[in-house]
Amino acid sequence: MTGETGLGMVAADAAAIPLAARTRGLRKVYRGTVAVDHVDLDVPMGAVLGMLGPNGSGKTTTIRMLLGLVMPTAGEVELLGHRLPDGAAAALPEVGALVESPGFHSFLSGRENLLRLAAAEPHLHSGRIPAAVSESLERVGLTGAANRRYKGYSLGMKQRLGLAAALLVPRRFVILDEPTNGLDPAGTREVRSVIADLHAAGTTVLVSSHLLAEVEATCTHVAVLNQGTVVAQGELAELLDSGNAGLLITTPEITLAVDALRDNRIPARAVPDGVRADLTATTAPAVVETLVRAGVPVHEVRRDRTGLEDLFARLTEDGAAAEAAEFDLALPIPEEAR
């Protein structure tokens, strides 16, 4: 019943990939404003899908419809094989979610807040509640602050508690809307490790984010939203390959390097600290071998990290949107705060 079988099936038959979530023709109109339109989203079982998009692109609205919180104006949603909204009772117990800013009672402690949510969890046996809550707090590193009032929590602690609530029970599908919002670098790393653990256990994960690096580091799949529609989706590797993959080589002998690569029919050009080699027709080891043979001193070789950013910029059509996403790195703003 878990994602492990799902993963196996992905490999076995790509034509009929089991999906953790699927939307068709999703449309939502808020008082005359179209928030989301024609969204056909597929979340493969066992995948870690990163949902990207500039602010106001419809990420949160899509997630809210995926969870049955918001009724779509048109279109259909399938969650773990159950049609929403009727199948919500069957699907939601197996789904953990952190949507928008975490919602807790400020006058209760973190533990009490979780106890309250645990009481509402269909899959949790009453006798298991205290243990499940403690484990969940432990998992997000809040054990020390568990008995403090939520009111006194920092933004990061609130976010962690939200994560703890989403992971109160083992889930088949976990949806995290901006999980690293407000977290310090250490917290961000921990979230990444949680996502990796979930992935390893076969859980399907959907992460919405505007932090491209985070998506690139943790996701197997990507869906890019812009202006309320999905402009691209698929496996991360495939999408990146469709873009312009490259290798950045730091070297003092820039001219020598460019010449050596071009002699071997590898497109290359000079960049500030070295050379950028195009990987469309070759592989990284081939590039390095060519340079070493030509006697070029190679100080550092790395993948051109701008791949997803380029892709994102191209898909969202205007560079300003990508810049806005970049800007959010420094100033996290809760998306689509309604």
Partner: peptide, 19 residues
Amino acid sequence: MTAMTLGEIQRPDARRAPL
């Protein structure tokens, strides 16, 4: 942060928490 294990689900078929 520790990985969670499956199999902790106690009431796997329950669709509603006890009232």
